[in-house]
């Protein structure tokens, strides 16, 4: 250990004494001799109504509760199909092949990634001269600045530490719609998270307006 000042030494001593409150050996309570019996709760969730629900209830619920599906992040239709095939082939789910497409459709209806076509359309010129830049600045300072920096160059205290580093928003060539998609859904392989659950649609467009404003004033 490197040298400590007297003050540091006293602090360490004090902390050390507090940490020394436990005996390392714990006497176990007498071993249990009588049978242990518990009742596990029944399933907390059930499958929601929709075409194919009966197949899900009939096959998935043999081995596991419905929350196995609802706790998953939204999956693509392809991912759900892979999962169903894995259940059938690796885990022995007795589902007949001809019922798999309906089950996959049902799972997609319950918990799937929104197709890109359902994203709100944003006109390229919808931000100039509106009052949302100020609103966007507040959103930016609260949520974006720690990574992307106060100037938007990606040099915030957290952003500098990231690999890859946070994006330089003043140098982006992306169209509004593209940029909005990244803000909403995050960027795979980077630290950029999805904001669509956190920010309202209004806040999303406002922060986009502010980013454009930052780039202009740069």
């Amino acid at each position: 250990m490197p040298g400590f000042t007297k003050q540091q030494g006293l602090l360490i001593l004090w902390v050390g004494l507090l940490f020394l409150s436990v005996t390392p050996w714990v006497m176990a309570e007498p071993p249990r001799e009588t049978p242990l019996s518990v009742t596990l709760p029944s399933d907390l969730m059930t499958f929601q109504p929709g075409p194919g629900r009966e197949i899900a209830a009939g096959f998935c619920l043999i081995c596991h509760s419905a929350d196995y599906i609802y706790m998953q992040p939204p999956h693509s239709p392809q991912q759900w199909e892979e999962i169903v095939h894995k259940m059938q082939r690796a885990f022995g789910c007795p589902i007949p092949n001809d019922q798999i497409p309906t089950l996959v459709e049902y799972l997609v209806s319950q918990n799937a990634i929104q197709p890109a076509s359902s994203l709100p359309r944003v006109a390229e010129s919808s931000f100039a001269g509106t009052g949302t830049v100020e609103q966007g600045r507040q959103v930016y300072e609260a949520h974006c600045q720690s990574c992307h920096g106060s100037t938007g160059k990606g040099d915030g205290p957290v952003g500098r530490m990231l690999i890859p580093p946070a994006a330089d928003l003043t140098a982006t060539t992306k169209a509004d719609r593209e940029l909005l998609h990244i803000i909403q859904n995050g960027k795979p392989g980077t630290a950029m998270p999805a904001w669509k659950g956190t920010l309202s649609p209004g806040e999303l467009t406002a922060v986009l307006a502010y980013i454009r404003d930052l780039a202009r004033s740069h």
């Binding site: 518990v38 009742t39 596990l40 709760p41 029944s42 399933d43 907390l44 969730m45 596991h64 509760s65 929350d67 196995y68 609802y70 706790m71 998953q72 992040p73 939204p74 918990n111 999805a194 659950g197």
Partner: peptide, 26 residues
């Protein structure tokens, strides 16, 4: 703090309320 991150807090046998990811198997 992630999507589909809501977890009911339920008491299972010999447990205090814990965050239930799935009920069966627990």
């Amino acid at each position: 703090p992630f999507k589909r991150g809501a977890r009911p807090l339920v008491t299972f046998p010999q447990k205090r309320p814990l965050m239930v990811m799935t009920t069966r198997p627990p």
